[in-house]
C-alpha cells in the first residue's frame, strides 16, 4: 500500500485508524489515509462498503473512533448523492442565494459552471435535468471558495455525455482554484482519468494508492469479488 507522507505542509487531510460502528455492526474498520492539497481522491467499493459513511464521518455527522485531522480551518463544499427537491418549491436563484448572499454573485457562480443565467435562475430545482441539477450543486459547493469538495456519486443520475462534461468541469475548477476533491464513484473511467489517488473500501481498506492501479485486474477482483472489463481511454480507442 502506498501511503502519502503525513503531516507535511502540503497535507490537507490525515485520517488515522478511523472506525465506525452502528448498532454493534462495524461499518468502517481501521481506515487510514492522507491527502495532499489540490489532489483528487476517488473512493471506490461495492454497495454497503461504507463510502458514504466515511463522508459523513469526514463531515462530522457520524460518531467514530480514531482521528480525522483537517489542516487548519478548511472550508468544505459538499455535493450529496440524493436531494429531496421534488416537493420543495425552491427556485435555482433562491437556492443559490442561500450560499452566495447577493444577486451578482449568484450569476457569477452559475456561469462558472457553464449554465446560462436567464430563465435558468427562475426554474424550480425539482424540474431541472440530472446534469443541470448537478451543475447547480457544484456551483453551490464552490460558491464560498472551499478548500475541499466532497462528491458522493456526482453523476449517478446523469447521462454519459453530461458525466464527461461534469468531470471536465471539475477538472477545470480544481486547476483554477487548487481545490482538493474527494469523489465517491463506481465509474472506473473516472478513477483513471480524473483522480490522482484511489481508496478502495469494503468496510476496511482494500487499497490506497495511485489511481492508475485501478487497471490491475487482481485489485479489481479484490474490491468487487469478480473480474471486470474497463472502458478504454479515448486515445486508446482511436
Amino acid at each position: 500500500m502506498k501511503v502519502l507522507a503525513a503531516n507535511s505542509d502540503n497535507d490537507i487531510l490525515t485520517v488515522s485508524n478511523v472506525s465506525v460502528k452502528v448498532k454493534d455492526q462495524v461499518i468502517l474498520d481501521n481506515i487510514s489515509f492522507g491527502l495532499k492539497k489540490g489532489t483528487t481522491l476517488a473512493i471506490v467499493g461495492p454497495n454497503g462498503a461504507g463510502k458514504t459513511v466515511l463522508f459523513r464521518a469526514l463531515l462530522g455527522l457520524m460518531p467514530y473512533t480514531g482521528t480525522i485531522e483537517w489542516r487548519g480551518a478548511v472550508k468544505i463544499g459538499y455535493v450529496p448523492q440524493k436531494l429531496s427537491v421534488s416537493d420543495i418549491p425552491i427556485s435555482v436563484r433562491e437556492f443559490m442565494l442561500y450560499k452566495c448572499g447577493s444577486g451578482p454573485h449568484v450569476e457569477k457562480c452559475i456561469t462558472s459552471v457553464e449554465l446560462g443565467t436567464g430563465r435558468m435562475l427562475d426554474k424550480e430545482l425539482g424540474v431541472l435535468s440530472g446534469g443541470q441539477l448537478q451543475r447547480v450543486l457544484i456551483a453551490w459547493a464552490i460558491a464560498d471558495n472551499p478548500d475541499v469538495l466532497l462528491f458522493d456519486e456526482p453523476t449517478s443520475a446523469v447521462d454519459v455525455d453530461s458525466q464527461e462534461t461534469i468531470y471536465e468541469l471539475l477538472n477545470r475548477l480544481q486547476q483554477e482554484h487548487e481545490i482538493t476533491i474527494l469523489i465517491i464513484t463506481h465509474d472506473m473511467h473516472v478513477v483513471r482519468h480524473y483522480s490522482d489517488y484511489m481508496l478502495a473500501l469494503n468496510r476496511k481498506t482494500i487499497f490506497f494508492g495511485d489511481s492508475e492501479e485501478i487497471s490491475n485486474p487482481s485489485l479489481l477482483e479484490a474490491i468487487y469479488g469478480s473480474r471486470l472489463l474497463l472502458r478504454k481511454k479515448p486515445k486508446e480507442q482511436e
Partner: peptide, 16 residues
Amino acid sequence: KNMILGMISEELATSA
C-alpha cells in the same frame, strides 16, 4: 433557510 437546507439534504446543510 436552515430548515429548507436540512430538508433538501442533511449533509448539505451541515456542510453549510
